[in-house]
Design a protein around this nucleic acid. Structure first.
Length: 194
DNA sequence: GAGAAGATCTCCT
DNA sequence: GGAGATCTTCTCA
């Protein structure tokens, strides 16, 4: 296992802290021969029953139960009949929480991403939560995957620490909880969503 | 078992 | 800028 891989302790913390600290980290996706990597430039934090916009807001269901599970595992789900969204479970086991990855900056395996995305221009490959899943070939099959141990999807530390400043804002695309600044992004990065 | 809503994207005007 | 696509999940009867 790579030395730079992020360990479970990193995820076993407050969702907002994890969301903020994930910025600049590198999401890696290995598919057979090729490995695609992207720097995380935008995230959103989701909490448990106290968070009106979270899937966990109405208690544990068959879908959201994974948010109460082990920190560091993937929570992938399908929305709007078209898109997968990729989350990482956070907080202590027994506490609901997750961080949604909203946008990446392609670092490695760009050709692979372009194939999966239908040869679009570089900037539109991964500048949205549904797009980055498509670019990395992430589907419901990756739901429940342990990012700490998996050799197909994991997160690692970047070669150098990010220099761009981190900003917070209300979450995007949710109808409830808009007053909460749970979205974090690297200011000025061209690969942000919207 | 049926109906409704949804953490989005793309195309068309 | 706006609306349709399209399907999973949840709620309620």
């Amino acid at each position: 296992m790579e030395e730079s891989r992020i360990r479970r302790e990193f995820f076993r913390r407050d969702s907002c802290l994890v969301a903020r600290d994930l910025l600049g980290k590198v999401l890696c996706r290995s598919r057979g021969e090729t490995t695609s990597k992207g720097k995380i430039v935008e995230t959103e934090a989701y909490y448990g029953p106290g968070d009106p916009a979270s899937h966990a807001s109405s208690g544990k269901t068959s879908r959201s139960a994974i948010m109460w599970g082990q920190p560091g595992i993937a929570y992938v789900y399908f929305v709007y009949g078209n898109h997968f969204l990729f989350n990482v479970v956070t907080e202590e086991r027994g506490e609901a929480g997750a961080v949604l990855l909203r946008a990446l900056e392609p670092v490695e395996g760009v050709e692979e991403m372009r194939q999966l995305r239908g040869f679009r221009n570089l900037q539109s490959l991964t500048d949205g939560p549904g797009k980055l899943c498509e670019a990395l070939g992430i589907t419901k099959q990756q739901n429940g995957l342990d990012l700490v141990n998996s050799d197909t999807v994991w997160v690692q530390k970047p070669p150098e620490s990010p220099t761009a400043s981190i900003r917070a804002s209300p979450r995007i695309g949710v109808s409830l909880g808009q007053e909460l600044e749970y979205r974090f992004y690297l200011a000025g990065n061209p690969y942000l969503s919207r």
